[in-house]
Nucleic acid binder design. Structure first.
Length: 155
DNA sequence: GCCAACGTTGGC
DNA sequence: GCCAACGTTGGC
């Protein structure tokens, strides 16, 4: 099993939204590296840190899991979607996604400044100002974040 | 709101 | 195929 981190702006889609929905297609990803992770490297059941960006402070707030196999992102074909991409041909889809399912909240959020200061989290991608919205996370870093967050709780 | 980082586009 | 211009992300 691999571990990941996904970023979301809570104003657009928060961990509470994922809890309410239970399962959600992770659509709108328009970065090739992030797409490749979903298409080629994620497996059902992989655990995913859910990170809130664009808030003060940014923080890991919960955990999701990969809920299904990859398939074409339908929003790419929808002219009314903000994610519409006319260059994505339905016969050769450019954008691929997986569904994410809610696992739980962290007992308390782990803010970015704390991630940066923690010696055991040295090298974690999100501390390096990476703009990638889907990032692989080492198991030891994943475990450390869960520990700093006081464990996973179901609200 | 600023701006650094960085991915994408398009002219040549 | 290079690279300047441009657009977006996202911390601060």
């Amino acid at each position: 099993m691999r571990h990941w981190l996904i970023k979301s702006e809570p104003d657009a889609y928060s961990i509470d939204d994922l809890q309410r929905d239970g399962r959600e297609p992770w659509d709108g990803i328009r970065n090739y590296q992030a797409r490749n992770f979903m298409r080629d490297e994620m497996s059902v059941g992989d655990r995913v840190l859910f990170y809130h960006s664009q808030v003060k402070p940014p923080a890991v707030v919960g955990v999701a899991e990969v809920a299904g196999d990859p398939y074409p992102d339908p929003t790419a074909f929808d002219p009314d979607s903000p994610y519409h991409d006319p260059k994505s041909d339905p016969d050769d889809p450019r954008w691929i996604l997986v569904d994410m399912a809610y696992v739980g909240h962290l007992q308390r959020p782990v803010p970015l400044p704390e991630i940066k200061e923690d010696a055991k989290l040295e090298g974690i991608m999100v501390a390096r100002r990476s703009r990638l919205s889907i990032q692989p996370v080492d198991k030891k870093h994943y475990d450390r974040i869960i520990k700093l967050g006081g464990g996973i709780v179901h609200r």
